[in-house]
């Protein structure tokens, strides 16, 4: 029988090797699943993991998909560090897309310098408000944030469906559930012509570095880590748990909203009923890594 004993010290080797091993095991599991589906596992995993890196079209798709995941993932990992379990990122992503998209639709003739920052801001505020609502319910009413944030994910999806099939439906859209296309000025600036490589792709790693810096080097980041690892110690040290919960939910919600805005202004160019193919849930996995 397996017996588990506390190690008593932190192994330098495992600290860095565990995530690598997790990735290797994930690859092996994927290979196994492909093998069970009757495909050659080695080749499929190779196609899956390596081809996107050497093929330009594939590489473009990879960075475009990765940007929202990075934004949401870093926000979530910050919250999870403090034991704030926001799992409604899909909802905050949707609300961000709705708010940003709403601004873009409301200002079809405004110049890019005015409208695009407003769109981004609206998306971030929307996501942060959704996250903030969850924080408020947890602090004020002691409601479990896992359940409330997830319920808001469903609610915001229905809100999106309502808007896109109802008041915001494109009158020229032949009845398809989608809004009008945003004006070119409201779209995320492209970094490379004729591709989907937009500003968000540049921004995502910057946000990640900034948040890492905050978590690792600042007092606030230290408070987050203490709250997550030793709640009582954090209380004795006089750290305000409520303040940290607020910050965690606002940041992770705001970043999810930002990711939502970039998704609709960077790749889709309009709102549809189906803007998030499970990004929020994938981001949770990203945050665990």
């Amino acid at each position: 029988m397996l017996k588990i004993e506390p190690r008593g010290y932190e192994s330098e080797f495992w600290k860095y090797f565990s995530p690598v091993m997790a990735l290797l095991l994930t690859g092996a599991t994927a290979g196994l699943i492909f093998a069970l589906m009757g495909r050659p596992p080695g080749l499929t995993v190779y196609t899956f993991l390596v081809t996107p890196l050497i093929n330009t079209g594939g590489f473009e798709a990879l960075v475009v998909k990765a940007a929202p995941l990075i934004m949401m993932g870093v926000g979530l990992s910050l919250a999870y560090k403090a034991n704030v379990w926001n799992i409604g990122t899909d909802g905050q992503f949707t609300i961000g897309a709705i708010c940003g998209g709403g601004v873009a639709l409301a200002l079809p003739d405004a110049p890019a310098l005015v409208v695009f920052p407003l769109v981004l801001l609206a998306g971030m505020i929307g996501g942060a408000l959704n996250g903030g609502l969850v924080a408020w319910l947890r602090i004020k009413f002691n409601a479990n944030e896992i359940l409330t944030s997830l319920m808001f994910a469903y609610i915001s999806q229905y809100l999106l469906v309502y808007l896109v099939t109802g008041p915001w439906r494109d009158p020229m859209g032949f009845g398809f559930p989608q809004t009008a296309m945003f004006s070119d000025e409201a779209l995320a600036p492209k970094l490379v012509e004729n591709t989907n490589v937009h500003l968000g792709i540049l921004l995502a790693p910057l946000i990640a570095v900034a948040l890492w810096f905050m978590l690792d080097k600042s007092l606030l980041g230290f408070q987050f880590r203490v709250l997550g690892q030793a709640t009582r110690a954090a209380k004795f040290a006089g750290f305000s748990e409520n303040k940290l919960v607020w910050i965690a939910m606002l940041i992770s919600g705001g970043l999810a909203g930002l990711a939502g805005v970039f998704e609709v202004t960077g790749t889709l160019g309009q709102l549809t009923t189906n803007i998030s193919p499970g990004y929020g849930y994938t981001a949770i996995i990203v945050a665990f890594l």
Binding site: F141, L147, L159
Partner: peptide, 28 residues
């Protein structure tokens, strides 16, 4: 009533019930 709102009611209901129930931290 737009059908999306109706479909959302169970989820809204869950949030409301959770809030009402959890409010009394001592009882929980």
């Amino acid at each position: 009533i737009p059908s999306a709102f109706l479909s959302a009611t169970p989820y809204i209901g869950t949030v409301i019930v959770l809030v009402l129930i959890s409010r009394d931290a001592r009882r929980i």
